[in-house]
Design a binder for these strands. Sequence first.
DNA 1: AAATTATATTGACCAGTGATCAATTGCAAG
DNA 2: CTTGCAATTGATCACTGGTCAATATAATTT
Lengths: 202, 202
Amino acid sequence: MARRSDHTREELHRLALDAARKITEKDGLRGLKARQIVRDIGYTIGTLYNLFDDLDDLVLQMNGETLDALYEACSSAPMDKDPERNLRALASSYLQFTRTHPKLWNAIFEHKLPNNREMPAWFLDKVARLLLLEEKALAPLFPDGQETQCQHHARVLWTSLFGMASVESADRLPEDETAESLVASLIQIYVAGLRQKAGVPA
Amino acid sequence: MARRSDHTREELHRLALDAARKITEKDGLRGLKARQIVRDIGYTIGTLYNLFDDLDDLVLQMNGETLDALYEACSSAPMDKDPERNLRALASSYLQFTRTHPKLWNAIFEHKLPNNREMPAWFLDKVARLLLLEEKALAPLFPDGQETQCQHHARVLWTSLFGMASVESADRLPEDETAESLVASLIQIYVAGLRQKAGVPA
DNA sequence: AAATTATATTGACCAGTGATCAATTGCAAG
DNA sequence: CTTGCAATTGATCACTGGTCAATATAATTT
């Protein structure tokens, strides 16, 4: 009962996170237990705590990987000079991800550190990185020198998109409404409003 | 060690929910423990389970009361014929509440029932009721017969507002941005877009 | 007033949780 | 071959949500 050399430390790390992801995708963050993870990978509880500080650390890393996957999915959205099309493509990729992995995506926001501890910087960076995509999508609408304006409106659209995905994932949308229909209106109307403000009627 | 008749069943129910609310406001849903509740109200664990099915039941009722309080706060927002002013007033009341009781408000969405059980109807009704306020605020913009349109756009604005409050409450807004600044833009630009679509330039 | 019924309340108890750590073992370097 | 290092174990701890037989009191019946 000691070094088994079945897996390297890195392999074990991977195994544990993969197992945690599978459990979370099925049962949600609430169903994720340390002992279930080690049962699934054929190790014991002590080994898990040799790899991670605690369960919060493990969940944080799992959520970090989810953010990476989400970023990759959103990066694949095509971007050109038409902001509306950019925003629609980005939102579509985003929503496709949140629908394919609803509980995994939810875990990102459900997970709160105890004692009001703040999330580590590397995690916040992964969150912030996503917002840059929205900014990039919206950029064609703003002339040089208005980057601050562009950033502000990207934040408006991004937090709104988050709200819609969130409400949909909580099954709190009526039958005749989807996150897509809400986002479609948001983008269409909001961009029309922005164009008008800039003195460029559609 | 039996019937104490210090409190009626209703009073105990109230005491327990009040204690739970105080704990949640301070430590969040994660810090809410059955034994802490009964310690605070001077009873024992068995009594709590005589009053509630389980902790999920208690949390659900606590969240229901939070939704009631939020509804009351939002109802006080003045409504007239100016949709922008209506929406701003409503959003302001909403954000004031979420800032005064961030952890209590968060508990509404953090709380997930086990085994994918769905929320009871009376709870969903309390959620849906709030949306009607947004509809009422937006209504002056739409002529009779366009209630469906009004409802749709109210949903867009409502889910967006939720997203902004949510991101702010998770402390994921940069220093130079607040939920208020985001909401202000959302309302201004979106309503401008809606007016333009209807052929009524601002 | 006495006996009976009903129920509010207790707290020991259970299974399960996250986390710790001395002991054990196998690997690798000297 | 010996030594030292570190991976792995599982007993152990404090705590959790939840159950339930026992009990003491209030309410009701006789």
